[in-house]
Design a protein around this nucleic acid. Structure first.
Lengths: 335, 335
DNA sequence: AGCGAGGTGTTTTAATGTTACCATAATAAT
DNA sequence: ATTATTATGGTAACATTAAAACACCTCGCT
């Protein structure tokens, strides 16, 4: 690895002359600057990032901790975070908590030793269930700027990026009601998550406000240990008059749609289905699934923006929560 | 941030005593070790990673450069890489090339300044098409260990992890032949990639060896600019007698299946379909798609293992290429 | 002519946090 | 008294940068 010292020796000048020359300091003669730069280029000199970071206590690196990359929502968020960070001259160190609190705490602990300037994260399921966020607060107390996205906690005081989960589910349910649906079932495999609860409340509120809807709400939850297909099969058996389904996670809607087709429901005449998520995973269904789009790219981008703002101006103590708009995208499984 | 200096001052000992104590040096009295450790714990001291790395010229960080996280194969590979790296005490810095050579070169350039101990990468499409791998070789010439996976190049001399693309497609085609299929079409949206070419050759070879197969091979390629559905629609129109489809990328098989169902093909009686990829994305089709499983987790794990082996023993100059076994998983779209 | 002021271009020093090596002081054993 | 032994301290180095110091030169003034 080529260092300033190497260049200095070759050129018979001091290390600091070389350093200044490479920074175009006007203390250095144009002639020297030229010679230094020529040799640096020739030897493919690159400033050692570790040394620069150590000196400046700025790493230009963001720690990103997500619960699960195989979940398309998080993959897409990660994509957006990487894109925006890269555009702003930052790198990202990615850690996956696998929904486990211990792994999450570990990653935070291991990266909060100068490795990163700040964190962008979404809370692991286990952490949310136990509602134990001490490990996250510990990081924040160390003055490491942190942005939470999607899965957040009221017990953490930091910048946040969320969607209007309540409103999104409310709007979707309202749409089903406006189609004249009389028995609308909610499907969820995320009932333990903050977002799951908010979305469920949106659904409940919409039904409550509906004048001519007299059914009790039906919420079918799929646990980790369950076989989703089985649970959904049972749902159809137990709710023979179902005519609307809203899935508040990003997979069960697809499964329900497939199952409904197999049971010969005419879609969307007999039954409307609305899923929750950006389009990509679901683009292959036929008929094409109507969804609540979360604008995941915007979520990732906003998270980076919020973090960088905080990094560049750590003093403004007021934390902001940015809400990204959702959009009900009606495709072929709704009227 | 708490440093050795802080601890030293508090305890009225020297920095080097503190350092040694924390490393359990037997030069230091048990009593002092205890006191130092107690305070370190109390103040939540964590060795500054930058300083340690600078001193040891070891970052315990791997740079991972993948073409596209939204492609489920790469997401899964990234997942496996993160898992294994984390298990071995390494972090990963993730960069996405977006299939662009410039971005790929940029990331390599920016990380090869001491930020990472080595690279794990899969080559961007643009790079493969142009077959210009100078930027990758530049890194290798700087003695930064590098492992290529999946998309590799013969012009790069380094450790590699691949699957037997030729053999996998050959086996799948053979299976279709053994079902008595008479008109087998290959679908691909990756004809420009090394893996695409190998898989196509496997298909061609199988057909060539089949005694009672007299059709010309039919290879339908989907370009970036194409509408996949449209292209597949045309394929069915132009090949009314098609009775076998092998898709060598990880999406077109699903689209073909959906389209075939719409055209009222009885699957797998009239038509068999085999896709290429691990299961997850495709688990929702009905009937369930038969696939060539790439064992993506093994690919990621092997990449990390190979890189760490190289890092711990940089001298053995012979580069190895590890081939991960594929598996033909027959589900419901084959007989 | 002599001297200080000012400017230019460079080097020296110190600092970031850590660790390895060498030195040193104090005590114990020979 | 000399040599081990034990426990600790000091220094340098990793690569970089900022600040201060230092030559050297020129200019203006008495």
């Amino acid at each position: 690895m080529v260092t300033l010292k190497h260049l200095a020796e070759q050129l018979n000048v001091s290390v600091s002359t070389v350093s200044k020359a490479l920074h175009n300091s006007d203390e250095i003669s144009p002639d020297t600057i030229e010679r230094v730069k020529a040799l640096a280029k020739f030897l493919n000199y690159k400033p050692n990032k570790l040394a620069v970071s150590l000196k400046s206590s700025r790493t230009n690196t963001i720690g990103v901790i997500i619960p699960n990359i195989l979940n398309h929502f998080f993959a897409k968020a990660l994509y957006a975070i990487e894109m925006e960070a890269s555009k702003q001259g930052y790198h990202i160190i990615t850690c996956v908590s696998n929904e486990l609190q211990a792994k999450e705490a570990d990653s935070l602990q291991l990266l909060s030793n100068g490795s990163v300037d700040g964190f962008i994260m979404s809370i692991a399921e286990e952490t949310q269930v136990a509602n134990n966020v001490d490990h996250i607060n510990a990081v924040i107390q160390q003055n490491i700027p942190t942005v939470l996205f999607d899965r957040v906690s009221d017990d953490i005081n930091c910048d946040k990026v969320i969607i209007d989960d309540f409103g999104a589910a409310y709007e979707a349910t309202m749409h089903l009601l406006s189609e004249g649906r009389k028995r609308i079932v909610l499907l969820s495999d995320i009932e333990d998550l903050s977002v799951g609860k908010l979305r469920t409340n949106g659904y409940l509120q919409a039904l409550k406000e509906a004048k001519d809807y007299h059914q009790e709400p039906v919420m079918v939850t799929i646990k980790k240990s369950d076989d989703a297909e089985q649970v959904i099969d049972n749902m159809f058996r137990n709710n023979t008059t179902v005519d609307g389904i809203i899935s508040i996670d990003n997979t069960s809607g697809v499964v329900a749609l497939q199952k409904a087709l197999k049971l010969n429901y005419k879609i969307p005449n007999d039954l409307s289905v609305i899923g929750f998520s950006d389009d990509n995973v679901l683009q292959f269904t036929d008929p094409k699934l109507s969804t609540i789009s979360q604008h995941t790219l915007d979520i990732g981008k906003a998270s980076v923006e919020l973090l960088l703002k905080r990094l560049n101006d750590p003093n403004t103590s007021l934390k902001t929560t940015k809400t990204i708009k959702t959009k009900l995208v009606l495709r072929e499984t709704t009227k």
